[in-house]
Nucleic acid binder design. Sequence first.
DNA 1: TATATTATATCAGGATCCTGATACTACCCA
DNA 2: TGGGTAGTATCAGGATCCTGATATAATATA
Lengths: 142, 142
Amino acid sequence: MTKDMTPLLGYRLKLAQHALHRRMEEALRPLGLSPAQYAVLAELNARPDQTNADLAERAFITPQSMQGVLTKLEGSGLVERRQDARHGRRQLARLTGEGRLKAEAANAAVMRVEDLLEAAVHPACVQDAVDLMNRLHNAMCE
Amino acid sequence: MTKDMTPLLGYRLKLAQHALHRRMEEALRPLGLSPAQYAVLAELNARPDQTNADLAERAFITPQSMQGVLTKLEGSGLVERRQDARHGRRQLARLTGEGRLKAEAANAAVMRVEDLLEAAVHPACVQDAVDLMNRLHNAMCE
DNA sequence: TATATTATATCAGGATCCTGATACTACCCA
DNA sequence: TGGGTAGTATCAGGATCCTGATATAATATA
């Protein structure tokens, strides 16, 4: 006989993240950004002048996929890339002025979602929840 | 100044689920199944004779997407669909004999991942972790 | 009964991720 | 100094999800 899978922790983790992703999409849609695009803007806002490969690694996607994201953001005028003076192949990405404004607006929208998420646990337990996520993450990475 | 986003709960939730998804892909790859395909087999194993629309709703994807999954599983001989005698349009899906064997093998592989995941928390706290995921999920669904 | 609404399946096309392959640049080291 | 290795960008093609549109069958309703 097969067990009922629905009460399992992995399934619940998937459900929670799926709902969060939907909420993120909704929060960012008015700004014309996808979650992936937002992640790049936030990252470049915190640490300018990163290569495509750097950004891909931080976002857990391949450099090929990040290429598409970055090219689109560049086409929208939110990001600019220029040659690394000391490296013939590297291209360093940074936010434009418009990109910085967009990143700040997106951060505000995302923080509203984060606040809703954290409101689901007692204020004193937020760190416990973060620790739990870290333990689950580490368990899946060996 | 922009806050550092990395310690936030939503980000950690995303990371944990991402790592779990990778593990699931690895666990299912030897069986020739994707996580989405596994979900359908497990669901049909527990509840046979569901329509494409039913399965799509349970898996949180569109009927159009589920069509592709189901058509592929049908082509692999793991699932069969037949007309509902009382509904001219409905097609009911169920596992073939081979499909049942595959579903059982996949369940075993997935349970090994689930065990690793649950090992990251004290045995007495697994239910607490499940409850936390449910609270986070509900917070994102209003 | 006749029509509108709902449910279901399916076609077409777009977005974003992936893997594999290729070209060019930088770095290490024998 | 010269050649292998590693890093970076990019092209090509595949998988899977999405939205929008269409066709048909069942059901509700006037």
